[in-house]
Design a protein around this nucleic acid. Structure first.
Length: 922
RNA sequence: GGGCGGAUAGCUCAGUUGGGAGAGCGCUGCCCUUACAAGGCAGAGGUCACAGGUUCGAUCCCUGUUCCGCCUACCA
């Protein structure tokens, strides 16, 4: 037979591109409800269509691909469904930047043409990340690629919206929401990131209307909002102030007076001055307090969070003050207001005060509470079943430590603001009759204070929406036929929430939906547990009547080698594409898998990836070794008939198959990867391949056919075991080995084979390993020159040792460096023989020539003292009566055995020392 | 403020029923031995954060402390 030749060094580039193409061409990844096998389905967390593959994706996708390839090989009917997310705000920002660079503003382009631009952009560069995913070897069913704004998904979105509206779970209301003054849109609560900063607490005196000499000191961190105050609150049981309740104070810098109210919820008597200003239009607490006391809201910021001239005027602010602060952002207005108050001797104190501010998760601008009409999902009724599903185990969160996080958040959940004042996204399917609502629809181009502001369309609170899957043709109230659609679009996460069923065809009852829903596992990072996972659970239960997935596997965040979050601005980003180019895709995948231990972030350093590149190369060379030794007959005798090294490696292989399988079942990718690494490198390569060389190189050996068989059988099985982790390398090698079938992708995953099991081989191997180790150590510490022949004697009072000496003897003969002779412990040859001891084994070395006996003596003495310490420790323990009485029997036996061995070693060490000293003449 | 996680070799981390402290990388020494120098062999290196407690015995269980990280939060 002709033996295929492999290059000395593995070159991933050539191999990866080739297989990636073949796999896709042959349709191995294509799923069908009619395929046999138990369904196993993963829907990918759709990456932003704007995106390119970062290392977080690489981890997330590698894990999914491991699961998918593993289950496919196990014979499941596998579907890994890919797709991308339209990512409303993010994408709009990207395209907007582009057109601004061309000198065009979004507003001047207009809504329709802008959206066209985004689609264009998506068509040209939206599949970047898809190409990169293929590069990573992801075995998705690319024929089923979905996009959160494609037609089917849009249909699902409208269906869900309408049904939730009809169930009164969606409503429109004017409430205080989080507003990003840069993106000019509402945000949901979780789209706000909190950051701790050093702020100040200002104490401002509000003079009493009745008697301006009496002043109520009010504490605030944001003096610039004071113009919107509509009351001051004190604690009703605070003896300092409670008699003032019902009176009015003069609001400084304005012509207004505002009431003093008592409010036990808002006011903490211990904090600040004990008196709080109430600004319902600009603070969430104050908004609630305002509702409790029936106070009006006076907005004084515009939507860019600049102090609004018109608003200030309405709020009765002194004209001189308006002239100073109008159109300033809060951060600039604050010192000016501080000055004005100081001039009037009303600012009494400024203290340092740690506080938290909210920032937009997309653009990091400080968000502002903003009063506006928005659409909300009433969330409690949806959250209840979603809590239950996790509590009763229908959904399992892994690692389970995150379960409480999930439950805690779900129990505290607040209504979800789903409307966004942007253009790119699913436009809300609600229409307003122009006739009925003519006073409530304001098309306002003139209100723009600056050029940056667009002419805007506002639909005031109180307008009557008509919600439906399509535009209405006639108004049910006035029979009008002119409508305008709600300009707002839905939160991106609204469509993402439907992903597990919308991608399978819902609302149609497709065979896919029937076969693959509920999906099997969701693989995701913690950062989108609430954004996405929780909402999928709620929507899945509501619209499918069943959970969207069984297991949620939450993986770590990838950080840089110093533990910093990777970000472009810090310049510490590890680019997976660059890494794949440099070290190979398999090395990257294996690295990420091996570091994916639960509950810990991954600190990724390139050296680590390099290490696994070396691992890939090691495997490559093991395969070369195999191929070089394949010529000649192979017979597949029963494992029990084969030689000791063969039986040993098969039994270790068997254990590794078991271990890798059980670790994958437990989502312990790190341990599965480490088990593979350990087995392949340190057992198969370091020991097995070395031990069988004498057999393979001896043409007369009767064992050669069995060993050749074991050699290739083990490697072939190992390739299948490793394939989910390193798909390219294993495919390439598998094809060079004798094999049946056209691709490793569709081979069966190894299953444990009872005929391979031979646990007793483990003990025998340990003995062999120790003997060889001792021989090697002896050689080193005697400084035997390399290449010089050396004669070892190994004691064989134990029949098992006799057995393992054959491979030992041929091993050393093979190395051409030494010979191994047998000796009975009672019959050591005489002469310059140095005996060395380890763990009950005794090896003798016939000392000849120029060797370093002093080094050996030092080492011997050190070993003796270490052993003495250990003996004393064990003796003391065994003498302890309570230990004898309470410790388990096997622990005691174990200790006694160890002690016996140590004592025997000690005796032999002592005689070695004697001999050495004699030889040295000391 | 509340909750969770972490602290083990120079670095990154394993260590699941409490009984001799491990791996990878790095480091030191020797070796280009016909699979692999992206390699082989041998070795150095750790009062398992600190203080108590439970136990015959604690890296492991409990309590407290310190430091770090994350999530969450309307103390103005």
């Amino acid at each position: 037979m002709t033996t295929p030749q492999l290059d000395k060094v593995y070159d991933p580039k050539a191999v990866e591109a080739r297989w990636s193409q073949i796999w896709n061409e042959r349709g191995y990844f294509h799923a069908s409800p009619t395929h046999p096998g138990q369904p196993y389905c993963i829907v990918i967390p759709p990456p932003n269509v704007t995106g390119s593959l970062h290392v977080g994706h690489a981890l997330n996708h590698s894990i999914q691909d491991i699961l998918i390839r593993w289950r496919r090989m196990q014979g499941h009917n596998v579907l890994w469904l890919p797709g991308t997310d339209h990512a409303g705000i993010a994408t709009q920002n990207v395209v907007e930047k582009q057109i601004v660079a061309e000198g065009v503003s979004r507003e001047s382009l207009g809504r329709e043409r802008f959206i066209e631009r985004v689609w264009q952009w998506k068509a040209t560069s939206g599949d970047t990340i898809i190409r990169q995913q293929k590069r990573l070897g992801e075995s998705c069913d690319w024929d089923r690629l979905r996009f959160t704004m494609d037609e089917g998904l849009s249909k699902a979105v409208r269906e869900v919206f309408v049904r939730l509206y009809e169930d009164r779970l969606i409503y429109r209301g004017e409430r205080l929401i989080n507003w990003c003054p840069r993106c000019l849109t509402a945000l949901s609560d979780i789209e706000v990131e909190h950051e701790n900063i050093k702020g100040k607490l200002y104490s401002i005196d509000y003079p009493l209307e009745q008697d301006p000499t009496i002043r109520l000191p009010v504490a605030t961190t944001r003096p610039e909002t004071m113009f919107g105050d509509t009351a001051v609150a004190v604690h009703p049981e605070d003896p300092r102030y409670n008699r003032l309740i019902g009176q009015r104070v003069q609001l400084p810098l304005t012509n207004r007076t505002i009431p003093i109210v008592g409010d036990a919820i808002l006011v903490d008597r211990e904090f600040g001055t004990g008196a709080v200003k109430i600004t319902p239009a600009h603070d969430f607490n104050d908004f609630d307090a305002g509702e409790r006391h029936g106070l009006p809201s006076l907005p004084v910021f515009d939507r860019q969070a600049l102090l609004d001239r018109q608003g200030l005027k309405i709020a009765g602010v002194d004209q001189a003050v308006i002239d100073v602060v109008a159109a300033l952002p809060a951060i600039k207005a604050r010192p000016k207001i501080q000055e004005l108050l100081k001039d009037r001797a009303l600012l009494t104190k400024v203290d340092d005060h740690p506080m938290a501010i909210g920032k937009c998760y997309r653009c990091k601008t400080v968000v502002e509470p903003y009063l506006s009409p928005q659409w909300f999902v009433k969330i409690k009724p949806l959250a209840e079943p979603a809590i239950q599903a996790v509590e009763d185990g229908r959904i399992r969160i892994i690692p389970e430590g995150w379960t409480n996080n999930y439950l805690g958040w779900m129990r505290e959940i607040k209504d979800w603001c789903i409307s966004r004042q942007i253009w790119w996204g699913h436009q809300i399917p609600a229409w307003y009759c122009r006739h009925c609502n003519k006073d409530l629809i304001i098309e306002d181009a003139a209100a723009s204070a600056s050029a940056a502001q667009s002419p805007r369309l506002t639909i005031l609170q109180g307008a009557t929406p008509i919600v439906g899957k399509t535009a209405p043709s006639i108004c049910p109230r006035c029979a009008g036929q002119q409508f305008m659609q709600e300009p707002d679009v839905l939160d991106t996460w609204f469509s993402s929430a439907l992903w597990p069923f919308s991608t399978l065809g819902w609302p149609e009852q497709t065979p896919e939906l029937k076969t693959y829903y509920p999906t099997s596992t969701l693989v995701t990072g913690l950062d989108i547990l609430f954004f996405w996972v929780a909402r999928m659970i709620m929507m899945g239960l509501k619209f499918m009547g069943d959970v969207p997935f069984r297991d949620v596997y939450i993986h770590a965040l990838v950080r840089d080698a110093e533990g910093q979050k990777m970000s472009k601005s810090k310049g510490n980003v590890i680019d997976p594409l660059h890494v794949m180019e440099q070290f190979g895709t398999d090395a990257l995948r294996f690295t990420l898998a091996s570091m994916a231990s639960p509950g810990r972030d991954i600190k990724l350093a390139e050296e680590r990836i390099e290490g696994y590149r070396n691992f890939a190369n090691k495997i490559w060379n093991a395969a070369r070794f195999c191929l070089m030794h394949l010529d000649g007959p192979r017979t597949a005798t029963a494992p029990a008939e084969r030689t000791f090294p063969d039986r040993w490696i098969l039994s270790r292989l068997n254990q590794t198959v078991q271990l890798v399988t059980s670790e994958l079942e437990a989502y312990r990718f790190d341990r599965a990867a480490n088990a593979l690494y350990q087995f392949i490198w340190h057992e198969y390569c370091d020991w097995y391949l070395e031990l069988i060389k004498p057999t393979l190189q001896n043409p007369a050996s009767p064992y050669a056919p069995g060993t050749r068989q074991t050699l290739v059988e083990t490697l072939e099985t190992t390739m299948r075991l490793l394939h989910p982790f390193m798909p390219f390398l294993t495919e390439e090698i598998w094809h060079t080995l004798p094999h049946q079938g056209e691709s490793i992708v569709v081979q069966r995953f190894p299953i444990p084979d009872a005929t391979w099991a031979a646990p007793e081989m483990g003990q025998r191997f340990a003995l062999l390993e120790q003997t060889i180790g001792l021989v090697r150590t002896s050689r080193i510490l005697l400084n035997y020159p390399p290449g010089q022949q050396i004669t070892f004697y190994v004691a064989h009072n134990d029949p098992q040792q006799q057995d393992h000496l054959d491979p030992l003897r041929s091993y050393f003969a093979h190395l051409g460096r030494g010979t191994v002779n047998l000796a009975s412990t009672t019959h050591w040859p005489t002469g310059n023989l140095l005996r060395l001891v380890m763990e009950g084994l005794s090896v003798g070395i016939a000392v000849a020539g120029d060797v370093d006996l002093n080094n050996a003596l030092d080492r011997l003495i050190k070993q003796q003292s270490e052993q003495t310490k250990e003996i004393e420790r064990l003796e003391g323990k065994l003498r302890n009566q309570e230990f004898a009485a309470k410790a388990p029997a096997e622990v005691i036996t174990d200790h006694q055995e160890r002690l016996t061995n140590l004592r025997r070693d000690q005796t032999m060490l002592a005689s070695s020392e004697q001999q050495l000293r004699t030889m040295l003449g000391t």
